[in-house]
Amino acid sequence: MNRLTGLFFCVSLLFGASWLGLVAYPYLTFAGLRQSKDEATGALAPLGVPGTATQGARIYAANGCLYCHSQYIRAKDEGSDIDRKWATRRTVARDYMFDRQVFLGVSRLGADLTNVGVRQTDPQWFYRILYSPQTVSPETSMPAYRWLFVTREIQGQPSADAVKLEGRDAPPPGYEIVPTDEGKALVEYLLSLKRNYPLPEAPEATE
């Protein structure tokens, strides 16, 4: 074995260690996750995600929501996430087992969205904050996602999911602002973010 072969070998070996530890190990371990079954009720958790929500996850990625919003909760002694009432327990690997794409996120310019579907159950709230974030929270630096909506003439009855807006943002009389299919899918996805079922490995945080 000449010197250069040795160097090659060592350089690859050192790097290969991190590859085994941080890539191969989780790949094999988390492929084997199963749902948890409640002893008393037989309820399974977590449950799968509906199809439109999966569609919406793609819109979430395409519009870069993940650059300002996180989707994980630290344990009570590791941060203020639980005190902020974003969740009642930390999140664990099993919470994400059905997610086609996992957006943990590393920035919190906006609120954590782990359980946003628990906090807000009205699609209207989501439509409003997506169409005109400053009407929901004046100081926010969140951009408006108006391309997820169309303004159209009201045909007969107004649509049920037309966005209720006032003042400057309101559509001209006879018109309404409705979410596109993409907008609906995104909101469907956000509404589906409910990681509030019990898991044995992550007990509810106590005071």
């Binding site: 590859w19 530890g21 941080l22 344990a75």
Partner: peptide, 29 residues
């Protein structure tokens, strides 16, 4: 050089401190 080769591949998980991953992975980072 060898220090970088040894530690360089392990540093990434520090972005996910407190995250839903085995604690040893984050601690190693």
């Amino acid at each position: 050089f060898w220090g970088l080769a040894l530690f360089g591949g392990w540093t990434g998980m520090t972005h996910l401190i407190g995250g839903p991953l085995p604690v040893w992975m984050i601690t190693a980072s």
